[in-house]
Design a protein around this nucleic acid. Structure first.
Lengths: 240, 240
DNA sequence: CGGTATTAGTCTACACTGTAGACGACAAAG
DNA sequence: CTTTGTCGTCTACAGTGTAGACTAATACCG
């Protein structure tokens, strides 16, 4: 609507005459970036074609030149997220290090983009960026003496846990407080948690929720989970 | 629309005069059941207030007497799904058995309701029905000599894997074939898989997708995953 | 039983969604 | 210059979730 008239002022300030206010023409990457940006700031439900369009100062229909439809756009965002986890860290030969790198990479993405969690989980799409990451992990684990099927199981295990475990805890994220090492609930946090649950939840079940989703997740916490899987994998190798 | 005029024919055939064609009045359970039913048959996207209403032969607005809004309805469906996994199986004292029961229970739900997978994962809600199940697992594991935090980690691990691992593979579900024990791709299935991926995926990455999501998941397959976690847990206990 | 309060169902209306289809502006190729 | 193809725009439409006012059915209490 207001996309054209303002642009007609000066012609040289932009790359070309009529194209979007921000100079450069729209392309898939810029599109997906702002889409992710909107999700981060206002949640998945706010991700509307029209909203992206206004953010980009462009007509809603323009988006369809770069993406088939909204589903494809969402898949693109997922692709974008996967591309943020780097296939190899330092120490990229040691299988344990690689698995832990994979797990932490996925978890980091989740923590950086909390409201994108549902997206990542609800569209179990395997874009190229995901496959690259998985391939490296798979290869290293195989080279460590596992069969291909074993390697697949292990890698699936790590990614599943990293993704859905993180998502669960990010969703129930509580107002973070100084850090309370004991397992005992801080009253204020307990109240917040209770309000997230169905209102008629009996106290002992609230307690269960508290145990499953403790408020602050330290890195060591997730390291513990990773150790568990790695230990399981090793045990599995030494038995045959 | 057509909900009233037909009812005025005979009064005694139904419980009461005007109430929904199917006799009984609408209640939350019947509502959630048909909602789930629609998801099963036509996918999450087909789950529309209006569609549920026609299925129930009721005005769309009636639904709002039993559920606050659509989000609450979706949460209700999730609750419904969790209530399908039974807290305790036979052998409900042995912690390994309980964990495996939990994992398989969740996986079974996923396989019974493939298109509800995204729902279950994208709304990481902890309804009462979930908390009951988790509580039992948590208690048994704790009694087996784990600390509360350890127990939480283990239970989270099992549920995460069962849920998201299953979801991934259900989504990429391939036309099932006789069962091909070797890891080698059946050509026809390979084609199907390739079509599910972005069209420009290079062959070696298609191969990765194949490895991560092998076509037929046998029970033993998942048992393998469960063993891994249980072994990891045990290792963890024996060390302190 | 009658009268009254509460609920369950209905109708209408509205703001908002994704997107098809026709059209204009521009760049590159001939 | 013309042609061709791409990118952005406009208009329009069917379908969505749901607020609000109205009506019929039930539950409750004397």
């Amino acid at each position: 609507m207001a996309a054209r008239d303002a642009g007609s002022g000066t012609v040289d300030e932009d790359r070309a005459g009529r194209t979007g206010r921000r100079g450069q023409r729209l392309n898939r990457n810029r599109l997906l970036e702002t889409a992710l940006h909107i999700v981060d700031q206002h949640g998945v439900d706010a991700l509307t074609m029209r909203r992206i369009a206004t953010e980009l100062q462009v007509d809603p229909m323009t988006i369809y030149r770069h993406v088939k439809n909204k589903d494809a756009l969402l898949d693109g965002v997922v692709e974008q997220l996967w591309s943020q986890v780097w296939p190899q860290g330092p120490d990229s030969e040691e299988w344990k290090a690689v698995l832990s790198h994979l797990g932490r990479g996925l978890r980091d993405v989740m923590m950086r983009h909390p409201s994108a969690g549902p997206l990542l989980l609800s569209r179990p799409v395997l874009p190229g960026s995901a496959l690259v990451v998985l391939k490296h992990a798979l290869d290293v684990v195989k080279d460590a003496g596992f069969t291909e099927q074993e390697a697949a199981t292990i890698v699936r295990c790590v990614s599943s846990v990293a993704l859905s475990d993180s998502a669960l805890r990010v969703t129930y994220e509580l107002p973070q407080r100084p850090h309370n090492a004991s397992g005992e609930p801080d009253p204020e946090q307990l109240i917040s948690l209770t309000q997230l649950l169905p209102p008629d939840t009996p106290p002992d079940l609230v307690r269960v929720a508290w145990t499953i989703c403790p408020p602050l997740e330290t890195d060591d916490d997730f390291g513990f989970t990773l150790d568990l899987i790695v230990a399981g994998a090793e045990h599995l190798r030494n038995r045959a």
